[in-house]
Design a binder for these strands. Structure first.
Lengths: 341, 341
DNA sequence: CCAATTTTGATGTACGTAAATCAAAAAATC
DNA sequence: GATTTTTTGATTTACGTACATCAAAATTGG
């Protein structure tokens, strides 16, 4: 059986109360005694029974999720997964609150973060907007010992404890290689549809994409990026226009949201030509398009996994426990029509 | 706050002891009283606090993993993941034992399964060998209320509670489409290297592969399957021989283990020709081959995820709890050189 | 060496559930 | 209606930890 506090007390030759004082870093223990207890803990390999501790403390984990108020399928999906997590709250002892902030608005995000310090959640997950002020606010909270994870979009260079999202540079590189290999020896032009170059994950995807294209597929020329603002209408307009004006387009990489518009444009304007299309995010629309061959491959991040991972990591950090690294790696899912879930 | 047994007792107008009798299906409760308690449970939305219950019971979960004694990278990896899980046992209250049985030997597997009934584990995970006797043995154990999950290789048509592994037909189909698309307009022959057609997962991969090849890539002809018995030496010999004798081979699909031999053969015999190669299972060898362009894509199943999933599912079944379906779906990972973990 | 202070021990209660015991009440049997 | 049997209640202990209180011991300062 694993050792208990009683075993530690016996081994260290002190009382239960003293062990408790050491374990919960309460004052009133002489330095030498504290060391004696800590030695016993190490030697017996004691690990606190988190379940029993939580029971005794009546502990819950108040968590805050901060999301951009974006009206696209992916954010809706992310929201839905958080609601699922809320349903599991009783069993997981979590108490989850979500806050919506205007998208692409660092100031709003910062003010929410500042307000949070007072309400003392035991963990914060946020879809980061990449700005110096946000980084500073996050770093401040981390220094005040709040566990913080970034979700979907990272905040490189900040002190956040963990990033629950995919490697977007790798995603862009993967998209490029898939597109390049699928196109084979053909020469032509590639249209790229993004949401906004102000968002870090989109910038990174493009960066990875152009890098591999330049290195490995010199016969494919990347056209200037179309910024669809993750809006189906704008995306439709931009793509339809590009296809109408440029007959040399043989491939499309859609690295953001708004794929509904892209798909409509492809069906209207590309019936007579063979396009190879790679898009991000598996939704009802992209799934249907993959099945009817309008899209050739979908790169996806599993929002459910991201949310569950963020919660696990925040709880672990709050308890000062280790996480299973491999379990928390968010994979880049590649879907062809054959391996759809 | 979530309701406790006390609340149920008060609501149903019975004592704590009676609630306990109902909850733990102990005898000595009149039918009408039992119903009154169950109604209260439903109306208050009571859910047993598993952590507290386990604490009170001093419960552990004795689990058994039954694995084939195969000497290949994948099985070594699977074993390593189980050892990792053993290290987490104290925190997860598991008590994991692994049993090795000769590979491809239904009789041995059956006799292990029969022996298990006496030792009363609270859950069994097995890499199934697909045979009627095995199915019967599994069904018998399920009827005796043992939670059972198949791992890596399924036992279709049996009563097993869950399958922790990938959809191998989908894997084969995906491999075919990747290979077909990568090869583009080229015509030629495809070599297929398998472990053994006696193993269900290999049969299924081949089935999916040939189906998509026939439907969508009629210009590619599949050569007779090479059975390498998951052995690098045999694989090397078979592939080297095939390449030497057939100049028309332009693609290879390796759907089993023994890729070390395949890679060596490719490097020796295919320096002067352009081959497109898809293999299964990410190991040190396949990873290196992917990076140096010997292999074009690797399909993988995450052994760590499979083991953790099997454990979660077995524990949940033992407690009669629901599992998060999406979390337990084992994905088919597709790795190009750009998205390696 | 005494007093003041700090450190330690002993003990009890609590968390939500399991499991056991024994007495009391209710129902079924004759 | 008395007796047996079944059902229910009341109470206790336990799991491993947290946390509080009060007394006792050890240490420190003067």
């Amino acid at each position: 059986m694993r050792p208990t506090v009683h075993d530690i007390a016996a081994a260290a030759g002190v009382s239960l109360a003293t062990v408790d004082r050491v374990l919960n870093q309460r004052p009133g223990v002489r330095h030498v005694t504290r060391e004696r207890v800590e030695t016993a803990i190490r030697e017996l390999g004691y690990v606190r029974d988190v379940a029993a501790a939580n029971l005794a403390k009546g502990r819950t984990y108040p968590l805050v999720f901060i999301l951009p108020a974006s009206d696209n399928s992916f954010m809706h999906g992310l929201n839905a997964e958080i609601r699922q997590a809320v349903l599991r709250s009783p069993a997981e002892r979590t108490d989850i609150r979500t806050i919506e902030v205007p998208a692409f608005d660092p100031a709003a995000l910062v003010s929410v973060l500042e307000g949070l310090a007072r309400e003392k959640p035991c963990g914060i997950a946020l879809v980061a907007t990449d700005a110096p002020d946000v980084r500073a606010a996050v770093d401040r909270l981390v220094r005040e010992r709040f566990p913080i994870v970034t979700l979907v979009s990272d905040l490189t260079g900040s002190l956040r404890h963990h990033y629950a999202g995919v490697d977007n540079i790798a995603a862009g590189r993967t998209a490029a290689r898939l597109l390049g290999r699928f196109l084979g020896p053909r020469k032509g032009e590639i249209a790229v549809l993004a949401g906004s170059m102000l968002v870090r994950d989109h910038r990174e995807r493009l960066e990875g994409f152009t890098a591999v294209m330049a290195e490995e597929f010199p016969d494919l020329a990347i056209l200037p990026v179309l910024e669809g603002r993750d809006d189906p209408e704008i995306a439709h307009m931009l793509v339809a226009d590009a296809l109408a004006r440029n007959a040399g387009i043989i491939g499309v990489y859609s690295l953001g949201a708004g794929n509904r518009g892209l798909i409509r444009a492809l069906k209207e304007k590309a019936v007579d030509r063979v396009l190879t299309v790679i898009a991000h995010e598996l939704t009802a629309h992209t799934r249907a398009a993959l099945i009817d061959n309008t899209i050739d491959a979908i790169l996806n991040q599993d929002a459910g996994h991201e949310v569950r991972s963020a919660i696990r990591v925040l709880k672990a950090k709050a308890d000062g426990l280790a996480v299973i690294e491999a379990q928390e790696r968010i994979r880049l899912d590649i879907f062809l029509k054959d391996n759809l879930p």
